[in-house]
Design a binder for these strands. Sequence first.
DNA 1: TAGCAATGTCAACAAGGCTGACATAAAACG
DNA 2: CGTTTTATGTCAGCCTTGTTGACATTGCTA
Lengths: 170, 170
Amino acid sequence: MAEGPRPGGQHGETLLFLTDEQLRKGIEAMFFAYKGFTSDPDRILEPRGYGRAHHRAVHFIHRSEGTTVNNLLAILGVTKQSLNRVLRTLIEDGLVESRVGTRDKRERNLYLTEEGKLLERALSDAQQARVRDAFRAAGPGAVAGFRTVLEAMMDPEMRRRYQRLTENGR
Amino acid sequence: MAEGPRPGGQHGETLLFLTDEQLRKGIEAMFFAYKGFTSDPDRILEPRGYGRAHHRAVHFIHRSEGTTVNNLLAILGVTKQSLNRVLRTLIEDGLVESRVGTRDKRERNLYLTEEGKLLERALSDAQQARVRDAFRAAGPGAVAGFRTVLEAMMDPEMRRRYQRLTENGR
DNA sequence: TAGCAATGTCAACAAGGCTGACATAAAACG
DNA sequence: CGTTTTATGTCAGCCTTGTTGACATTGCTA
């Protein structure tokens, strides 16, 4: 029952704390929190005729300026047809610019236009406000734990991408 | 360093720790973790022709046996038309039973049938396995922080519902 | 030059949100 | 008792966002 590389002395605690009920609490917390997490951006997107998919695209293009379509596909984990649909509208609406790659001309490098950056800021501000408030209320220790658990919950593939993303911004 | 409502001396830390970059990490962690969180149940649901909406209904009916449609609507935060669509298929397929209320005959009390309980168990087992692994890997302190942050991230309305749910099961 | 890679696009379909309108039965109210 | 409100169900239609399959173009690469 012990897990991982830990010495004795915490067996009882581990057992006590991983009851069905505790796990259920964690599961329900994820459900309700994710709802809140997406609600503010959703409100901003709706009147502009965009959805969550647009938000995600804008977020990761901002995060990794000049990223390629293939890279974005891997991060988002959707099909190219699905991504292309939102990407097309964003480009048509002048929020995203698609430049032919310099090294490899088959690739498209994606950038936010000034208008795109405005939307990104609006979405970020709203979402960050909620996360910041939650972080402040919970305190630094809780935040560290929060991220540790979330990271452990990711698929290994996604965890690698996540860690690669955050390395840059370190 | 301590957390919660503390006196002076923590400004620098709070400021340091709530950089844009830190918030972004938290946001991306939510995105990637939620993906993993839903992936196992999704794989179970797909061959049976069900989706996440069915999972949620089954989960909360299991959680609050005999709950009413209205209560379920409030917890899930969807329209009755949307809920009714999944509820109807679950009832037709014999996974959920809808009994006329005893006190108030307008109400329908919802229960899982034996077959419904089997599906619920399969879904729970899969999702709990991932959460349990993540919790074990992260350790008790991290788990506490995880739940503190998630709770702080919920809309107040949802937080109340969440807390009410977990009170029973305590 | 042949083949593979990166991208885009068309078409069709499904899940699961939404709104609006309407129906029924039962409770609650005056 | 009659009226109104509540709880539920249902039909129809729309939207976003995911899917698969097929196919075209361009440009690398061996």
